Computed example of a mutant assay.
Amino acid sequence: MSSFLQFVEANGIIVPDGFMAGRWIRCKTINHPRKKNGSIKLADDGQVGWLQDYAVHMEPIMWRANDGAAMAAPIDRALIARRQAERRQALIEATLGARTYYAKCTPLRDSHPYLVGKGLGVAGCVGLRVDADGWLVIPMLYNGKILSLQRISPEGEKKFHFGATTKCAYYAIERAGAVVTVLVEGFATGLTIFQAVPNSRVIVAFNAGNLPVVAERMERFGMGVVCADNDHETAARIGRNPGLDAAKQAAELLGVGVAYPTCSGTDWNDYAMEQVELAVAGQQFSFSRKRTVLQIQAAVFADIKLKVMRKAKLLRAK
């Protein structure tokens, strides 16, 4: 294995601690030490291995144990620079394309089938639009400018704008006089929290991996909390809870607490929908005065507010 690791290091890839043969491992590189911009794999028998630095190599490079000394593959610096310039240009074009697409959409009026299906009103939906196919369009912003878009079909299918970056992007659901800032993963979760917690402003990060990234850039003061997705089924399958792990990392950066739902679903909207359904079903054979769905929802929202506010702490000053 030592010869393979020499080959890896000679090609500018940083071998992670505890490296084991038999599977592809994402690695940091000398050129990009903050990113896992490379991959390595050593076969179980230790006789063949592969590596790839995505900024350098078009395809994986093979190593064989009987090839002798480890040698670095030749690097075409001009080719690397050209590819990087091409990627930058493609990203710029995708971002401009997202802004053009958003400009052609119609502002959201009244409601949308996706919101209705989630039991949500339009409070907090400032800036949302609807495209020609009837998909809900959510601007993904950074420093007030659109980086990308999330489109959601009436049935709940989700797509990001092709080629545009989502890193650092967020959607802020603002409220005058808000005293608590809530960071969440998904849009439906964010709108649920916003409508359940009357004194909140909500920041939607759009995916678990983006939670710590957005948290690093939050500089507001006041009360704060991260409302996590609870990926319990994923945890049972692979031993990790991606939504909760990312939320805890973000909460550590902000110095705040984490509130997560306990239900058969994964997020706070799932929790709200399940609690409303249970309460409605529980009235079926009751002789007491029936509550309307709106009254039940108000009670469920009050429960969510209590659970969230119990975890709220002062945002750490940066």
Score class of each variant (00 low, 15 high):
residue 297 Q to A: 05
residue 35 K to F: 12
residue 100 T to V: 14
residue 194 F to C: 02
residue 70 A to V: 06
residue 249 Q to E: 10
residue 138 I to S: 02
residue 281 A to H: 13
residue 36 K to D: 02
residue 198 P to F: 07
residue 246 A to P: 01
residue 80 I to E: 04
residue 306 L to H: 06
residue 255 G to T: 08
residue 55 A to G: 06
residue 134 G to R: 01
residue 244 L to F: 12
residue 262 T to H: 09
residue 143 N to I: 13
residue 308 V to F: 03
residue 39 S to G: 09
residue 51 L to I: 11
residue 252 E to W: 00
residue 71 M to S: 15
residue 265 G to W: 08
residue 264 S to C: 15
residue 256 V to W: 04
residue 141 L to M: 13
residue 20 M to K: 09
residue 13 I to T: 06
residue 206 F to K: 04
residue 2 S to P: 00
residue 58 M to E: 15
residue 115 L to G: 02
residue 101 Y to K: 07
residue 293 V to I: 10
residue 264 S to G: 15
residue 93 E to C: 03
residue 313 K to L: 15
residue 184 V to P: 02
residue 226 V to M: 02
residue 95 T to Y: 06
residue 101 Y to R: 11
residue 258 V to I: 10
residue 119 G to M: 13
residue 7 F to E: 10
residue 134 G to S: 09
residue 18 G to S: 08
residue 280 V to I: 10
residue 42 L to E: 00
residue 227 C to D: 02
residue 261 P to K: 11
residue 97 G to R: 06
residue 90 A to V: 14
residue 267 D to V: 06
residue 31 N to P: 00
residue 224 G to L: 06
residue 105 C to Y: 01
residue 15 V to N: 03
residue 215 A to I: 02
residue 19 F to G: 09
residue 8 V to I: 02
residue 25 I to T: 13
residue 91 L to I: 14
residue 157 E to W: 04
residue 89 Q to L: 15
residue 106 T to N: 15
residue 314 L to C: 14
residue 77 R to V: 10
residue 285 F to H: 13
residue 78 A to V: 00
residue 212 P to A: 00
residue 201 R to T: 06
residue 191 L to H: 03
residue 290 K to A: 12
residue 243 G to S: 02
residue 221 F to T: 08
residue 299 A to T: 05
residue 225 V to W: 01
residue 180 V to H: 07
residue 44 D to S: 11
residue 99 R to I: 09
residue 259 A to P: 01
residue 297 Q to H: 08
residue 151 R to Y: 07
residue 302 A to C: 05
residue 157 E to C: 07
residue 222 G to S: 08
residue 123 A to W: 03
residue 99 R to W: 12
residue 317 A to F: 08
residue 148 S to A: 08
residue 217 R to H: 13
residue 100 T to K: 14
residue 307 K to Q: 13
residue 187 F to N: 04
residue 211 L to V: 04
residue 22 G to E: 14
residue 136 L to K: 11
residue 139 P to R: 11
residue 3 S to N: 06
residue 121 G to C: 07
residue 288 S to V: 09
residue 108 L to W: 10
residue 205 A to G: 05
residue 199 N to E: 14
residue 92 I to M: 13
residue 42 L to V: 05
residue 157 E to G: 05
residue 170 Y to L: 12
residue 142 Y to I: 10
residue 9 E to Y: 01
residue 234 T to Q: 12
residue 246 A to S: 05
residue 270 D to A: 12
residue 96 L to S: 09
residue 206 F to V: 05
residue 23 R to C: 10
residue 158 K to P: 02
residue 152 I to C: 05
residue 109 R to I: 14
residue 178 A to C: 11
residue 275 Q to D: 10
residue 140 M to Y: 08
residue 151 R to T: 14
residue 298 A to D: 12
residue 89 Q to S: 11
residue 153 S to C: 05
residue 239 G to D: 03
residue 185 E to A: 03
residue 297 Q to V: 01
residue 141 L to K: 14
residue 190 G to K: 02
residue 176 A to D: 13
residue 104 K to M: 15
residue 220 R to D: 03
residue 64 R to L: 12
residue 74 P to R: 00
residue 113 P to S: 06
residue 144 G to V: 01
residue 260 Y to F: 13
residue 268 W to K: 02
residue 217 R to G: 10
residue 77 R to P: 00
residue 154 P to V: 05
residue 257 G to L: 01
residue 310 R to A: 08
residue 65 A to D: 11
residue 235 A to E: 15
residue 189 T to G: 01
residue 165 T to M: 07
residue 24 W to Q: 15
residue 102 Y to A: 05
residue 200 S to W: 08
residue 210 N to F: 01
